[in-house]
Simulated scan of single mutants.
Amino acid sequence: MFKKIRDRINEATQQATARGERDFQWHAAQFQQEAARQGHDIRPQMPTVGMAAQGFRAVDEDPAMVEFLALPGEEQLRQQGEANAYGRNLRRLHESGEPATAVIRTLDPTGSTVAGQQQYTSLLDVTRADGTTYQTTITHLVPAMVFSQYTPGTKHEARIDPRDPAQVGVFGLVD
């Protein structure tokens, strides 16, 4: 009797796993096609149990993320919307902004978090492609896992909003 129940559970688990893999492959193919239309070569990878465990450990070790996940659902959605708007603005700057470099001079916490990410203000020294420089202050989100890349004195690839030079997106480190 127990063997039959165990076998049925195993069979249902295998069917659900196969269905999940098929669904993932379909969604991954759709994502890959859309990325290719935008000029990116992205190959989604089926998550492994180890990857999921590592992700959950990282979330549990980040106090800001634990605090975020404890918020009521409506507040989580509001903050996620704010984080998405921030990300869309960074994407816009990256795609259409004027290339520049930025040196972070200050990194001051605002005391706020958005969707589990600390918010900071930074004074930047911005250098345009033509060599002209200016200073501006931005408010940005800095995930804990990359915090050390944003310490004062670090130099970054940046993009400037052509209509508003005070709007600067800070991206990867420059050697």
Rank of each mutant, 00 (worst) to 15 (best):
M1I: 10
I5F: 07
D7N: 12
D7I: 01
N10Y: 13
A16E: 06
G20C: 08
E21V: 09
R22I: 14
F24L: 11
Q25H: 12
W26F: 12
Q32F: 00
R37Q: 11
Q38F: 14
Q45E: 12
V49Q: 14
A52M: 15
A53L: 11
G55I: 03
R57V: 05
V59Q: 10
E61Q: 14
E61I: 00
D62C: 06
D62K: 04
P63I: 11
P63M: 07
A64K: 06
E67C: 08
L69M: 09
P72E: 09
E75K: 15
Q76E: 03
A83M: 01
N84Q: 11
A85E: 06
R88D: 13
R91H: 11
R91F: 02
H94V: 02
E95Y: 15
P99Y: 10
T101F: 02
A102W: 01
V103S: 06
I104R: 03
I104P: 08
L107Q: 06
T110Q: 01
S112D: 06
S112T: 07
V114E: 08
G116R: 02
Q117S: 02
Q119I: 10
T121M: 00
L124G: 05
D125V: 09
T127K: 06
A129F: 03
Q135L: 11
L141T: 10
L141N: 08
V142G: 04
P143F: 05
M145S: 04
G153A: 02
E157V: 12
R159H: 05
I160M: 04
D164T: 03
A166N: 15
V170E: 03
V170K: 04
L173I: 14
L173Y: 10
L173N: 11
V174T: 14
D175M: 15
